[in-house]
């Protein structure tokens, strides 16, 4: 086998584990070198030692981000499911309400929604707990995306599946439980897992209303010691440590359910 075969994939070649490992190392190295030389040009000397001093605050912020994301995941799933159901409602006002909701939250920047809901809606209705307000805003935002994912899942159910359910004598409730829901779950799970990664990243925007999550913690630390580069590099690594496993899991789910086509 010629050496170049290790690096070039033929049309019908299968990639071996060794090939995969070698080439991933090369890709990551290239990526890091770019940043290394960028830093070199500016003659920055990185010093990460201060992070240890702030370890408790960092752990606290990390935990808050995880907590915020998990609660928002559950709430946004609920909102997304309700909105997808409402979208198909025969009561037109409900159906359009769901469409307006999805359009508004998908069509405007989250930063605007955060300010609007925290300072106007939140103040008007007395929601002054920042964590709670953050969870609600994040859930509303992500719920709109999840509604679209679930709606796509519902639309992807072929009419023959429903006709077959009818033909074997299933009742409406059984059809939903035994045929429709399992198929929707299998088809939307990869996309929903991916959306969870988005929730984690998007939660960083809640630092704008001073929810003391991971990003806000780093902002505060870097404001006190001016180690901006080190702080934000470390911040990126922490977010990656959360989103990377989810991304791998999403890939795994996509492979597992590909038979569905």
């Amino acid at each position: 086998m010629a050496l170049y075969r290790v690096f070039i994939k033929g049309t019908n070649d299968k990639i071996t584990l060794l090939q995969k490992f070698l080439n991933i190392v090369i890709a990551v190295a290239l990526f890091l070198l770019f940043f290394f030389f960028s830093a070199k040009r500016l003659s920055i000397n990185f010093d990460f030692s201060f992070l240890w001093t702030f370890r408790y605050r960092l752990i606290q912020g990390f935990a808050t981000t995880v907590e915020l994301s998990l609660v928002s995941l559950i709430l946004s799933l609920l909102l997304g499911f309700l909105s997808a159901m409402a979208n198909n409602s025969r009561i037109l006002a409900i159906s359009y309400f769901s469409k307006v909701y999805v359009q508004f939250f998908r069509g405007t920047p989250m930063i605007m929604q955060i300010y609007l809901f925290f300072y106007i809606v939140g103040t008007a209705w007395g929601v002054d707990n920042r964590f709670l307000a953050g969870v609600l805003i994040l859930s509303l935002f992500e719920g709109a995306y999840i509604a679209e994912i679930i709606r796509g899942g519902i639309d992807s159910i072929e009419p023959t599946q429903l006709e077959a359910a009818k033909a074997v004598g299933l009742e409406a409730g059984q059809t939903l439980r035994l045929v429709v829901l399992p198929q929707i779950i299998k088809r939307t799970l990869p996309a929903l897992a991916g959306q969870f990664a988005s929730i984690i990243k998007d939660s960083s925007l809640l630092s704008l209303i001073s929810v003391i999550e991971l990003t806000q913690t780093i902002r505060e630390i870097s404001a006190s010691n001016f180690a901006i580069f080190e702080s934000y590099i470390f911040l990126g690594l922490l977010y990656l440590s959360l989103t990377f496993p989810i991304s791998m899991y999403t890939r795994y789910l996509e492979g597992k359910f590909s038979y569905e086509n």
Binding site: E158, T160, Q161, E163, A164, A165, K166, A167, V168, G169, E171, V179, P182, Q183, K186, E260
Partner: peptide
Amino acid sequence: LIQHRRQIGFVFQAKGLFNH
């Protein structure tokens, strides 16, 4: 009709099996 369907077998042209 639900009782009626339960006494009858129906086979479709294609795609009548549950995908999942």
